[in-house]
């Protein structure tokens, strides 16, 4: 069991004065079997009261709305989380013999249709179809997923600044580079193409080993493995997730989990946002 203190900070600067703004932050870790949030503390430079509600998947959205005039907005939150390993690192996932059968059940597919359907972010079109490995019948899903991660490492280089938050899996395969969310979109597309339900996860990575990690939040996926449930995998770092992965939210792709979305009333399209995340173990 680890206890983390996480701080998330976003600083927005606008060249022209903003007269109205609404911001949705998805930065609070969720509570689940492996993690519990024990304290949260918000602050913002406009001294507006934050409002919380749940999105369609049941995750917390922290909303800030203001009609004060401003040209800068600082938002920060400090969170304490207790985390334990969901599945022990040493446990080897043994495949149930009827895995393939499960995946092909219409009811199973229907129950998980959200995580089996391609989206704009997770679509791989004809030009890149040949890059998708096909799972052999009888191969355990967890083995296949590890092979997939190896395969993606060959296709995509970890590289900052070559993609944006709008880049799709198809484009990542063209660019052959990207950051954690790009790896995740390619990974999602390939899992779903093989009929394995997979969902996008955003969260924080406590990174003692200096693995690939964006400045702000990290992204990985959870695949549904019959008999075990949703299991986390990080394609950017080619590993199963562990006690260092603190989950915030999941959804079908980045759009469901974007840490910050906002709509403002101002005269200029330019704006600058800096995110800053720190994680310490207590």
């Amino acid at each position: 069991m680890n206890e983390y203190v996480i701080t998330y900070q976003a600083q927005n600067h606008y060249p022209e004065v903003v007269t109205e703004g609404i911001f949705d932050f998805m930065v609070l870790p969720c509570n689940d079997d492996s993690q519990v949030v024990t304290a949260t503390e918000f602050s913002n430079s406009l001294e507006e009261q934050a409002f919380q509600f749940k999105n369609v998947y049941g995750f917390d959205v922290t909303r800030l709305r203001t009609d004060k005039k401003f040209d800068a907005l600082d938002f920060s939150v400090k969170i304490k989380v207790r985390k334990r390993n969901a599945i022990s690192n040493h446990t080897k996932l043994t495949a149930s013999p009827d895995e393939d059968d499960m995946l092909s059940q219409p009811d199973f597919q229907l129950d998980h249709h959200l995580y089996l359907t391609k989206t704009t972010y997770t679509n791989i079109t004809n030009g890149h179809r040949s890059l998708i490995p096909i799972k052999e019948k009888g191969m355990p899903i967890s083995t296949f997923i590890h092979e997939l991660m190896d395969h993606i490492q060959d296709l995509v280089q970890y590289q900052k600044g070559v993609t944006t938050v709008q880049t799709t899996a198809d484009q990542v395969l063209d660019i052959k580079g990207g950051v954690c969310q790009d790896f995740t979109h390619v990974f999602l597309a390939m899992c779903r193409y093989n009929g394995i339900p997979a969902r996008y996860v955003s969260g924080y990575l406590n990174n003692p080993h200096g693995n690939h990690d964006d400045e702000s939040m990290h992204a990985w996926l959870e695949a549904l493995i019959p008999g075990y449930g949703w299991v986390g995998y990080d394609a950017a770092n080619r590993c199963k997730t562990d006690i260092n992965y603190i989950k915030v939210a999941h959804g079908v792709d980045y759009r469901d989990c974007a840490p910050l979305k906002g709509v403002i009333k101002t005269n200029s399209l330019d704006q600058k946002t800096e995110h800053n995340v720190t994680i310490t173990i207590q």
């Binding site: 369609v56 249709h113 959200l114």
Partner: peptide, 28 residues
């Protein structure tokens, strides 16, 4: 519940691939 799909009256693909299937409406 999507009973009509479970009962195979309407194919799942037809619904979930539609641009108008609105995820925000699930369970609402």
């Amino acid at each position: 519940d999507k009973k009509i799909i479970r009962d195979k009256v309407v194919p799942a693909d037809l619904i979930f691939s539609s641009a108008f299937y609105n995820r925000e409406m699930i369970g609402l």
